[in-house]
Amino acid sequence: MDDLEQSLRAALARVPAPAGLAERILALIGAGPMRKTRWWRTTALRWALAAALLAAMAAGGVIAYQRQQRARGERARRQVMLALRITGARLHAVQAQIVRLDGTRGESR
């Protein structure tokens, strides 16, 4: 080995990485120190998901209840209409009978 090679080894000794390089890389990948402070994100996400699930379930329940109520109302409306039609038909029949009776009385006099 000559002087030049020795000088090269000295000149090319490893240098320390810039301060904060590792932290910047860890921040980029979301690992390391960030992983330790990120617990709140996970917790908040879990709560948000639970709240969203509850809201979806509540909305689903309300919609199902409204549909059920509408169907019940529609059934009641149909029953009322049928009852009115039956009543109307009966009244019509009674009226016709009265008219017929009045006619026969007039003829007998």
């Binding site: 090319l12 490893r14 240098v15 990485a17 590792a22 890389i25 390391g32």
Partner: peptide, 30 residues
């Protein structure tokens, strides 16, 4: 993280000696 902290000096030094430019070496290391 262990690998990063253990080898950051090696990677940065290689990049610095080949590029001759600190910001470029930092970008290469990253």
């Amino acid at each position: 993280e262990t690998l990063l902290r253990e080898h950051q000096s090696m990677v940065f030094s290689i990049a610095l000696r080949i590029t001759g430019d600190r910001p470029a070496a930092e970008e290469v290391a990253q």
